[in-house]
């Protein structure tokens, strides 16, 4: 059962990383236009280099 002392913190830690990533995405307005983002990748406009913002 010693393995539990490792596995439980690891699984919680991985989950926490996911949660932190989600909160970061939320804070940086990445959920403001889900429909547009779903469509944007279809256009090849900024395929070569990122959009200069």
């Amino acid at each position: 059962m010693d393995v539990l002392t490792m596995l439980i913190p690891i699984s919680l830690g991985l989950g926490a990383i996911g949660l932190a990533a989600f909160i970061w995405a939320l804070r940086t307005h990445q959920f403001d236009d889900p429909q547009g983002d779903a469509q944007r990748f279809l256009s090849s406009r900024w395929d070569d280099k990122p959009r200069p913002d």
């Binding site: 403001d32 236009d33 889900p34 547009g36 469509q39």
Partner: peptide, 9 residues
């Protein structure tokens, strides 16, 4: 200078 469409809204 720039234009950005928000399709959701």
């Amino acid at each position: 200078r720039s234009a950005r469409v928000n399709l959701t809204l």
